[in-house]
Simulated assay, not measured.
Amino acid sequence: MSSGILFEVDNHIARVTLDRPKALNSIDPEMDAALFEAWTEINSNPDIWVAVLGAAGEKAFCAGANVSGGTEGDGRRMALGGGLTGVGGPMLTLRKPLIAAVQGYAIGGGFELAMCADIIVAADNAQFGIPETKVGIIGEAGIMHRAIRQLPHHIAMALILTGERIDAQQAERYGLVNEIVPYEKLLETASSWADRIASASPLAVQAAKDAVLSRAGWPLDVALATRYEPIEAYANSADRIEGRAAFADKRAAQWSGR
């Protein structure tokens, strides 16, 4: 991995840590490249079933981007966050579940990176904000499109138009975060969520995520009528056979992810 992040895998869980605390973990091109490598490894490695995205230091999860539209090693444009956000370049779709462990400032591109996660655990000192209008900078509008979809309409519009922030308690009230914990328990709690997800069939989890997100913006009748290839492929997997056998034997399933 390139510098700017820490990356480790243990017991089917990948842990990605933004590691520029002195810069409030703001994303520079080097970090973008490292994140791209991390997401690519998570997607391609069948022994990784879930990922946790955290950040070093208590003050900030991520204070946004130093620059947008970085490049990969071969010169192609890359979206902010290693491709995850779709801002400034092609969007990279993470097929595995992602948990964001957020503390301190999550503003601008950092807020957007958190919103890319499937589950958000927040420390009680977390603050979420979209400062673009307050500082007079409007470029890519990805964060605004995500906010209006993940928050109640008037709450999102207030954040967008004023540039003000909401705290962790407000974020939980509006359904943005799943759980609030003291900062000291943030990573422990995020790991607990990861363990719970990893205890389920990884292929079923990935198929469910693909089905839900690929048709999230479509009418219900279209979503119901769609054939989902990952779900169909799961029917012939070893995990499906193991799941049925474990249920019949009244024992915990031993998933292989294959």
Results as ranks from 00 to 15, higher is better:
G175L: 05
Q206W: 02
E229C: 03
M157T: 11
D118Y: 14
L186V: 12
V50E: 09
G142Q: 00
E229N: 09
L176M: 15
Q150I: 00
R95N: 14
L220C: 13
E140T: 11
E172L: 15
L6D: 03
D32E: 14
I13L: 05
R77S: 05
G142E: 01
R244D: 08
A79G: 15
A194T: 10
L224M: 15
A208V: 11
E58V: 06
S201D: 15
S201G: 14
A63D: 09
V121Y: 01
T162R: 07
A126I: 11
A106E: 08
D249Y: 02
I231Q: 06
G110K: 07
G243M: 05
D47W: 06
G136K: 14
G82Y: 14
P230N: 09
A168F: 01
A126G: 10
G175Q: 06
A194D: 11
V177D: 05
A190K: 05
P131Y: 13
S26G: 09
T71R: 13
L80D: 11
I107R: 08
S199P: 01
R196W: 06
C62I: 01
A101W: 01
G243L: 02
E72V: 10
I180Y: 02
I241G: 03
L98M: 15
N236T: 13
R251E: 06
G75V: 09
F247S: 00
A14C: 13
A106N: 03
R240I: 02
I138T: 14
D74C: 01
R76T: 10
A33R: 04
G69T: 12
A56H: 00
E179C: 12
N43M: 07
W193K: 03
A246F: 05
I48D: 04
C62R: 00
